[in-house]
C-alpha cells in the first residue's frame, strides 16, 4: 500500500460496539499485511481505548469517532469522543483502584491504557472539557526473508 488512505468509523457507545471498531481495525491491518500477532495487538488496543471512552467520556452524542490512517509501514488510529475530558487519575488508573485485593500488583481496574501503551509503538492523549482524542500508532514489524 503505497499511498496514505483514511477510513472513518463512528460507533455508538453501546456494549460490545468496541468489537465493530476492532473488526474494522483487523481487516485494515490484514490488508496492510501486518503479522497475525500484531493484528491481535491492534484489536486489543482499540478495544481498550473505546471502552475507556464508553466509561469516562459522558459525551452528549453517545458516540466514538475513529479515524484510521493507513500508510506504507504503519497504521495510525485516532479515537475521539466529545465528552468532558479525562483527568490524570483516570489516565494512570489510580481512580479505579477501588478496594485493594490480596495482592496489590493484581489491580483489577484502570489498566486499559497501560495495555495500550505496552502493545503499541506510540500513544498520545489530548484531553479537554470538549473531549478526548487518543492517537495510536502501530508500525509493521520488519520480517526477515
Amino acid at each position: 500500500m503505497s499511498l496514505e488512505h483514511k477510513v472513518l468509523l463512528t460507533i455508538p457507545m453501546y456494549p460490545d460496539m468496541e468489537l465493530a471498531a476492532a473488526k474494522t481495525a483487523s481487516v485494515l491491518a490484514e490488508l496492510m499485511d501486518f503479522e497475525e500477532g500484531q493484528v491481535e495487538e491492534i484489536q486489543l488496543a482499540i478495544i481498550e481505548t473505546c471502552i475507556n471512552a464508553f466509561e469516562h467520556s459522558q459525551s452528549d452524542d453517545n458516540a466514538v469517532h475513529i479515524e484510521f490512517l493507513l500508510s506504507e509501514d504503519q497504521l495510525q488510529f485516532k479515537i475521539m469522543d466529545r465528552g468532558i475530558g479525562i483527568t490524570p487519575d483516570i489516565l494512570d488508573g489510580s481512580r479505579l483502584l477501588g478496594t485493594p485485593g490480596v495482592h496489590p500488583d493484581l489491580r483489577k481496574r484502570g489498566r486499559g491504557l497501560q495495555i495500550v501503551r505496552s502493545l503499541m509503538d506510540e500513544v498520545d492523549i489530548e484531553s479537554s472539557s470538549n473531549g478526548t482524542t487518543v492517537s495510536v500508532i502501530k508500525r509493521k514489524s520488519r520480517r526477515t526473508a
Binding site: A22, I47, E48, I51, R109, R111, G112
Partner: peptide, 19 residues
C-alpha cells in the same frame, strides 16, 4: 478470541477466590 481488561479483572477475582 479476545480478552479485554474487564475480562482480565474477572480472572483476577477467580485467582483470589481460589487462593
Amino acid at each position: 478470541t479476545l480478552i479485554n481488561s474487564i475480562g482480565i479483572s474477572i480472572l483476577i477475582e477467580i485467582i483470589e477466590a481460589l487462593e
